[in-house]
Simulated assay, not measured.
Amino acid sequence: MMVSATSFAGELDCAAPPTASRDIRALGYYTDAARSRIDPQLKAQNEVAVKPLNTFTTKLGDMTDALIGKHDVEAGNCALSWLDDWARNDAMLGTMEHVNNDQSDYMRQWTHGAAALAYLKTKSLATPTERHEIETWLKKLSSANMTYWDDPKHKRNNHYYWTGVGIMATAIATHDHTLLKTAQSIYRKGIDDIQPDGSLPMEMARKRRALHYHDYATAPLVLMAELARIDGSDWYSYRNGAIERLAERVASGYRDPSWFSEQAGAKQEKAEPKGSSGWVEFYRLRSPHPANFDEMHSYGPFEDPRMGGNLTLMAKDGMVPAH
């Protein structure tokens, strides 16, 4: 569907969205049992395969950030036109092709999260028709993604938490109490997984990337708790604020990764906070010990399309536009 050309953020045009496909054919690119070593060729092939999905999420983040940060209504309307186009074409509701792993399912979960967050940020501008089309689509994606997790063979690690982002944002945007309960159960599973030392056993199994995956697992949990705040609920306090143990473990790991190297049995690959580490922008505002997160914060600003765009901006100006 072609949309009218408008400008947003001063430099981008509202062109047609990437072609909406019902099916996804993504590829896994890890080569070892711990899923810690990447095959560059497989990764490059996957990037080509999922480019339309990544373009969709990246541009949605750009447009909705322009709405939040610059009150650019045209950008918000452009984002809605993209969401409406994919909704009308039942994007991602077809076959999730398993080439060599479940990467296609993961891509649908991440893209659902980005789309639902974009809609949450732009809903106030949507027409009744757009609301109906987009909300129906987001709910269908929620159902499809949860069907994946009905299979007990699927380990409920960070991917499960990331599924919760799309379901939580959809629940808040559509006022769906059943979906909200589903999101809450996902969140609680993630928090229940946190050990007394702040670790997550399934992410520790990632060996040389254990620190990275602890960081990556923290992101959707903080984002869900932040979305709950918008809805007037305090999820941060669940299990006596156990999320603090995880967040602090990650922050201390970036200061000195030796603990992760010892516990994971592998020297950690060199890493620094970036992208999805932007959960820290929200969490440092909620933590009982905010100074523990100053160093991570200094690596910002943070942007991650799968988390809605510019996290530094959203933490400062809000995840939904001011009225």
Rank of each mutant, 00 (worst) to 15 (best):
G253D: 01
H132V: 15
G241W: 06
C78W: 06
A66N: 05
L83A: 01
E248T: 11
D317E: 12
V99P: 03
D215M: 10
Y160M: 02
E272P: 09
G253H: 11
R284C: 02
W235M: 11
H154D: 09
Y299D: 09
L138D: 12
R284F: 07
I191K: 09
S142N: 07
E47A: 04
G318P: 14
T178F: 08
D102L: 00
V48I: 12
A49C: 05
E74N: 13
I38H: 03
D72M: 02
R37L: 10
A66W: 03
A26W: 00
T182Q: 12
D23F: 00
D193A: 14
G278L: 13
L80A: 05
W235A: 04
M307E: 09
R156P: 11
D85I: 04
D84H: 02
H297T: 13
E262R: 08
E203Q: 01
P128S: 07
V280P: 12
L211M: 08
G265V: 09
S124G: 05
A144D: 03
H112F: 06
E47R: 04
M146P: 02
T6V: 14
F293P: 04
N101R: 05
H154T: 08
E130I: 06
Y236W: 02
D317F: 14
R255G: 02
F293W: 02
P257V: 08
L223V: 11
E133S: 12
A26Q: 06
R209Q: 11
H71Q: 13
M1K: 14
E262P: 00
D176W: 12
D85W: 01
R206C: 04
L221N: 13
W110V: 06
W110G: 00
T170R: 08
A115H: 15
A242E: 11
G164S: 13
K139Y: 08
E135T: 14
M1H: 12
V50R: 09
T182P: 01
K207E: 13
Y283K: 03
A26C: 05
L93I: 01
D90C: 01
D32L: 07
G61E: 01
A315S: 05
V280Y: 12
T312M: 03
F8H: 09
T111A: 12
P301Q: 00
L53S: 08
A16V: 00
A291Q: 03
K207A: 15
M2L: 04
R286C: 05
V73C: 01
V280S: 08
N240Q: 00
Q103G: 00
S4A: 08
Y29C: 03
L285G: 04
L221R: 15
A126G: 05
N54L: 10
H71D: 15
F293M: 02
M2Q: 08
T31E: 09
A115S: 14
I230G: 07
S298I: 00
D215G: 12
G166W: 14
